[in-house]
């Protein structure tokens, strides 16, 4: 990869749109970081999550293209909506695209998948007096 920006404006737009979709679908916050790690990837990804505004309700996708590592970190409250097995499936999807050199496609598909898995259908009549125990 020659020096320059990691993504073209169109690619950035696609990723941002996938992030917005995931957030609207799930009600959680999503963040994507692409870059090298100062240390081991998992602790570094957790540090990044802690820097965010609402880490407990955030899902962070960290990609290290040079180290060829991917980390998905799910905040404590977000974990109630998004299981580790769902994150593993999304990681597998992204891994397949990244291996072919398609960073943007992998991120878009993976983030959308995470948002879909985290989707919770609204509880109908939850506030009705007749249905309360």
């Amino acid at each position: 990869m020659p020096a320059g920006d990691a993504f073209t404006p169109d690619q950035l737009y696609d990723i941002e749109r996938a992030v917005r979709y995931a957030e609207e679908t799930s009600g959680l916050h999503f963040s994507v970081y692409v870059g090298g790690a100062d240390s081991e990837t998992r602790p570094f990804a957790i540090e990044l999550l802690n820097e965010l505004d609402d880490p407990d309700r955030t899902v962070l996708v960290y990609v290290d293209p040079a180290g060829r590592r991917l980390e998905i970190v799910i905040g404590e409250l977000a974990k109630r909506q998004l299981s580790d097995s769902s994150a593993g499936l999304a990681a597998l999807t992204m891994q397949t695209s990244f291996a072919t050199g398609d960073l943007t496609g992998g991120l878009v598909t993976g983030v959308q998948q995470l948002g879909t898995h985290a989707h919770q259908p609204p509880m109908l009549h939850a506030n009705d007096e007749a249905h309360k125990l």
Partner: peptide, 14 residues
């Protein structure tokens, strides 16, 4: 994949 990565970090929705 396998080649160096020189691009600056990108943080979307940071």
């Amino acid at each position: 994949p396998g080649l160096s990565w020189w691009a600056p970090p990108v943080w979307i929705n940071g």
